[in-house]
Amino acid sequence: MEKQDMTDRTGIFAGDDPFVIAQRWLEEAEQSEINDPNAVALATVDATGLPNVRMVLLKEISPDSFWFYTNYNSAKGRELEQSGKAAMVLHWKSLRRQLRIRGTVTREDGPEADAYYASRSLKSRLGAWASRQSEPLESRTALMAKVAKITAQKGPNPERPPFWGGFRLSPVEIEFWADGAFRLHDRFVWRREHPENEWEIHRLNP
């Protein structure tokens, strides 16, 4: 059940669906950010509980989740599979806003992953085959030699590697943050215990 007075959420915070608001913010950032408005800091934890964070590209905001793609054998891929949970943040300096998301992750390596892989440049598709992401690398020269070998083997239309595909984050918490004067920022958080539950909305102290 929604707790927050709806009249308090106006302007950039207005709306009944957090995914729609998030998409609107991203579209605004696409008009003002110089590079990669869809860059997100993705946080995971390893088997010991030690956090890891790195930048990835958010590829889609669907009606119920946030999508990104990676090598399943990478450190982040293994950690996502092990914990089933993740967090991410998008920070847009040009808009002085940020979006924080926490929730559960599901591996998606079906038609959506095939379609996105096919949309990438040929060099990026071949690079996905060549890179043993997160593993030690002898040299840049060795990597380029592997790319050349894969290019000869796979040709101009390589299939998606079985170790590469998507993850979707189904949030249990989404926080919208906007910079305020004197560090009195505006913050609204949408929370639910499980992805199938109704949202509760709260304004937070800065």
Rank of each mutant, 00 (worst) to 15 (best):
G165H: 09
W164E: 09
F176D: 03
W164F: 11
A113N: 02
K59M: 09
G127Q: 03
G103N: 06
D64G: 13
E135R: 09
F167T: 06
R107A: 02
L122Q: 03
R97K: 11
S134D: 04
K59A: 08
N71H: 11
G77E: 11
G103I: 02
L126P: 11
A130I: 07
F163Q: 07
L137H: 06
G110P: 08
K59F: 07
R160A: 09
S65W: 03
K59L: 07
N73G: 05
E60G: 02
A152T: 15
D109Q: 04
P51V: 02
V89S: 07
V56Q: 09
G166P: 12
K154T: 12
A145G: 12
G155S: 09
P161S: 13
R100H: 10
D109S: 09
Y69Q: 04
T70M: 04
P158C: 08
A181M: 13
L126E: 10
E79P: 01
R54L: 07
K154D: 11
K146A: 15
P156G: 04
G165W: 09
V56D: 08
Q82E: 11
A87W: 11
S74G: 08
F68Q: 04
A145T: 14
G110V: 03
Q133K: 06
Q153I: 13
A86D: 07
G180Y: 13
M144H: 15
P136G: 05
P158W: 06
A113W: 03
S121V: 06
P161C: 11
F176L: 14
N71T: 05
R107W: 03
A86P: 10
G127Y: 06
R125C: 05
R125P: 05
D64Y: 09
T141Q: 15
R168N: 12
